[in-house]
Each structure stands twice: as C-alpha cells, then as structure tokens.
Write a protein that binds this DNA or RNA. Structure first.
Lengths: 340, 340
DNA sequence: CTGAAAGCGCTAACAA
DNA sequence: TTGTTAGCGCTTTCAG
C-alpha cells in the first residue's frame, strides 16, 4: 500500500547498548541505577550513548515487564469546586515529589458517574487510587478491582478496608461554632449543611451540635442542601423564610458560603452586623469574599502529601486525621487583617 | 452484583482463549471488535469466558504492541485558579467522551516548572499534549519530543507549529468595554491587566484600547499585575493611589476581579455606584461576588471539546477561536437577575 | 473464519 | 562486572 514512511524509529536499549559497546542489561542497570552495579567507566559510556542517541525508555514496555506503571489514579468530584481545585494542585505536587504521575477523572459528584470514573481509571492499570468519594464507601467497593490500593480523601472517618485521609472535621466545626458562642456571645448558631454520605454521620454537623451541647445551648435551625453555591443560597433563603433571621450561621463549605453571602445580601442583611457567618474549608477565595470569611482551614498540603504517601505504602489500611486551624476574619465580627 | 473472581494471578488472553476453546487471536478480535470478523457464536463464547474469568486487558501490553497509550497529557497552571478548574472539568468530560485518559500535571505557572511538567508528562508516552502555557510558546518547543501532537489552550492567537484553541479575546474585551462606554456612559475605562506571554500581544488589553479608539476616547490608566487575587487587589490599589478613582474598571480575569472588588471595598468605594467593574472569564463564581460581576464568558465547554478533538486529530496544526458572550449583572450598573 | 507465531521494548534471572 | 536470554500480555500477519 502506497506510502513508505521513513519515520526515524524510536531509539531502544539495544541501540544504546550497541553504541556503547555493552549489552542491553547494562544499559538497563545504568538507567535504573540497579539492580546490579556497573563499572564507573562503563556507566559513563552508556550515559553518553543515551545522550547522543536521545534515548528515552518506553514506559509501556517497562510497565509490562515490571507490573508497575508509576501512575496513580485520581477521582475527584470536579475541580470547578475550588476546594477540590486546591486539593488537586496539592496532590499533583505531592505526586511529583513521589515520582508518580496522576491519571485523573472527574466524577461530576453523581454516584453513577463516580463508579464509572473509578472503573475507567482502574482499567488503565494504575498502581493505586485516590478517591474523594461523595457517595457511600460501600458503593466504591462494588468496583471489583481486587487489591488496588485505594485511599479515600476528604474522608473524616475510618472506613473498613480502606485507607482514609481527612480533617478533624468535628473538632474544627466545634471550634468555629464555639468562637461564635463564646467570643461573640451568640445564643445559638444556625447551620447550612451539605448532603453527605448517607450511611455516615455528618461530622461537621456533629461538631456544631456538640458546641451547643457543651455550653448548654440549644442549636439553631439546620438546613441541608447541595454542596454548591446555589445550594448555599437556597439553604440560607429557606432559613430566612422560616422564622426570624438567625444571628449567626455556620456554613458547611466555602462554596455554599458564597451562596449564603449572596442570599444575605439579597435579603438586605449585613454581615457581620445583622448576621455573623463562618465557614468550613478555608480555600484561598474565602479571604476575598465580602466580608472576608472566618473559617476553619483544612490543611490541604499535609493531607495531600499523606494521601500520596499512603497510596504508595503497601502496609495495610490506616486512617489519618489532620487538625484544622481557625482563621478569624471579618464575617464573624472580628476585625480581620486585610488580605496580603 | 457479586461475580467473584478467584484468580490469584491476572487473567490473560491465553486463559480466556483456552476457556472458550479458541485461539488468543480470536479473543483479541472480539475484544477490539476487529480487525477480523468473528462468527457470532464464537464471539458469544468468548464474551462469556471474559465475563466468567473476569478478564481485563492489560493496557501496558496493548500500548507496547500498538504504540498508542490512549492517554493525553494535560498541563495547566493549576486548578486552584477556578477558571482552570472549570477548564479541567470540561477537558475531562471531553476526554471521557473521546475514550482517552488524561494524565495531568500542574505547572504552578512558573516557566521552569512548566517545562519540567511537560517533560515529566511526555516521558510517560502520552499520545498527545494539551497545554495551557503561561510562558512563551518558544519555550515549550524547547522540550524536544519530536512530533508529539500538542495543542495550546487558552491561547487566543495562532502559534506557528502548534494547534491552538482560545477565545476571541480581543472582541470580547472590546464588547465589554464598549458596554461601559456606550450603555453606561463612562468617558473612559481603566484596566487591570495580567502578565501575559511576553512576545505576544495582550489581546484583552488590545480590545480595551480598541473600544476607546473606535469611539474617540482616550483610554484610562492601565496597571499590569499577576493573574491572582492578590495581584488584582494590588493593581487596583495602585490605580487608586495614582490619581482620582476611575469611574469604571475592566479587569483581565475573574481571579483578579476578586482582588479588585476587595480593594474597592477596603477603600470605601461602592460598586457600581462609585466605580463600575467588569471582568474577563465568566467563571461560575463571578455570579456570586458582591455585587455579581458583569463579564464576558469564555465558552469553556466548546473550547475543551475542540482541544481534545484537535489533539487527537492527526491532520496538521490549526487555530480555533471561539466567540465569547457577555453576561450583564450588577457590577456594571445594570440590574442583573438574582443567581439561580 | 480461526490458529500459530512473531515480536513490541524492557528487566532480571542466570551464566560467564 | 558484564552478557545472554526468557518472557511480561498483547496485536496482527501469515497460513490454514
């Protein structure tokens, strides 16, 4: 058939070996710095040959041979959510440091889509999987890839059979609500919560309730909405429509807080004068809302590092929880510093 | 669900073939639906064997054999920036539709880091590369992976030797500024610009200048800052410090607009009463700032689809530009609708 | 329509 | 210290 393509074929170990006057095994030893030692002079010749010929190892061949791809799968609900956007960046940095690549998929947050996302990723022979599951952990195990090391991130509680990494959500939420109760003297705090994993407790809500209990207050109203801006707005509007405005609101995520702030502005309520607002996550953007949000921040960098470490670590499942830190800004009534 | 696989070692074509009483070639024909036809009955037996044994093709072996990995590399400045977060989501959706995986790397936006990110990705034998380059296109070509199909996204101008996908930035910026000039009657508009690719014109700034020229106005002051929230704040503060406040500001990106809004609030200036603000990008969040931002929106879905199509398309480089649409909200002085 | 068999490029025994 | 070589699992040409 017609056209003869004279494409410069790819350089292989064999050619490097021939050029350097050694065997292909030696080339491999040099490239991988093992498993056998190579005489310094020989090694130098090989490296020179590699340089001259422009040799690059074929990663498919290596993966086929070794059984390891050096790639970890990453399934997130989607980086449109700035929290997961920042998480993704941190995971990439950690993966780079660990020398592995990240094969990503967005789950779109819907359960069906998440299962298929995991499915698609696992199909490609990754060495492990990092999943921010928005669905029940039970569902993920439906994916029958035996023994693929999996770590669930943004997961504040242990899940049997899986490694998990998450914030100390309950403690963080409690600290934030106690700040409102004790420092700013609110009698109670309302809560705009997010739809979570059905079978598990919502730790943020637990912490919020706990803060009230500890100080013998009765909690304000709760409303459960989507983890979206629109959800936050809707939830806040519902709250406002069902009684006198609360004096303070604890929002379950920065994304929802955008919507809450919006709803409050639409309703002519000032923050923090009329209503104090605090939020959970502490993304970069929370310093730029108006007013800037008082938050508990998730230590994303540390959690991402832990996630990558854990997925690469073959010793059994473990749960790692990270302390959150509170950042006070204007939205709670404190006079925070201007953004840097 | 629950078919349980009891094979300790991985199932291969050979085993499927043996189970189905055919040769491995036939199994391959069935799995890949070609290149040779298989008798319906035989095919059914093979599919049954695959099901029963829980066979999954080894993608490394297939890649080694075919020379194609079915994976496209993606290098973005980082998904902490919500614009690129949304872009990443759209690219993932498009990649899924096209049946390819996305191997991602964050470049961190720094030139050195971007080159190494591209380097790391290319090393893994991807079929193509999608890059949102924040640096000079010249620099990317320094990466010497011969003939790796590459498409530059978020790139509003053609670059010789590369495929490019971007918005009609100049037209979009002009439309936005003209809205301020003609509808709201501002005499001139200031501009908070972003540091761009040095050797190329800043099309947003060009559009801004063009709007003034077309209507015989002299442009307001410009300040060039980082494409960050802090950069936007700084730039706006500089603007305010160097003369009387402008009556209107065109901001080069939503991220910077966050900072501009913040700076204005700090300075006690109301939007839009004292200063009108419009922005370029139209990310989801722009509907939730206070006040909501009037923007020109980048058609991210369409551009992402085009990017994936283009990188998979072997016919030569091409440039595709997409029209932006203006969304008027409160920040320009229009009374936009409340967020849905 | 199906089977046999030759590698793709690499790593890691095993030999020397 | 280095060379030889047997596959890893798959696709696809060539025979049947």
């Amino acid at each position: 058939m017609g056209v003869l393509v004279v494409s410069p074929t790819r350089v292989t170990v064999a050619e490097v070996a021939r050029y350097a006057g050694v065997s292909s095994a030696v080339v491999s030893y040099v490239v991988n710095d093992g498993p056998r030692r190579v005489a310094p002079g020989t090694a130098r010749r090989v490296r020179e040959a590699i340089e001259v010929l422009g040799y690059r190892p074929n990663s498919s061949a290596r993966a086929l041979r070794t059984g390891r791809t050096g790639i970890v799968g990453l399934v997130l609900p989607g980086t449109s959510n700035p929290f997961f956007g920042e998480y993704a960046d941190a995971l990439h940095a950690a993966a780079d440091r660990a020398g592995v690549g990240l094969l990503t998929a967005g789950s779109g947050g819907a359960a069906a889509s998440e299962a298929t996302a995991v499915e698609r990723i696992a199909r490609r022979d990754v060495d492990g999987l990092i999943v921010a599951t928005s669905i029940s952990p039970a569902d993920i195990s439906g994916v029958s890839y035996p023994r693929l090391p999996t770590v669930l991130v943004d997961c504040a509680f242990p899940v049997p059979g899986y490694s998990t990494v998450g914030p100390e959500a309950s403690e963080g939420a409690r600290e934030l609500v106690e700040h409102l109760l004790l420092v700013h003297g609110h009698r109670s705090v309302a809560h705009v919560a997010g739809h979570g994993v059905d079978i598990e407790p919502d730790l943020r809500q637990l912490g919020w309730a706990d803060a009230h209990r500890r100080h013998s207050r009765s909690p304000g109203p709760v409303t459960v909405t989507d983890y979206t801006r629109a959800g936050g707005r809707r939830g806040c509007l519902d709250l406002l429509g069902s009684g006198p405005p609360p004096s303070a609101i604890f929002v379950g995520s920065d994304l929802q807080a955008d919507g809450v702030l919006r709803a409050l502005a639409e309703s002519g309520l000032r923050v923090p004068e009329d209503v104090a607002v605090v939020s959970f996550d502490g993304t970069d953007q929370s310093a730029y809302t108006s007013p800037p949000l008082t938050v508990v921040r998730q230590p994303i960098l540390a959690m991402a590092t832990a996630a990558v470490e854990t997925v690469l670590d073959t010793t059994g499942p473990r749960h790692r929880a990270f302390a959150m830190d509170m950042i006070t800004r204007r939205s709670c009534g404190c006079s925070g510093p201007p953004a840097g």
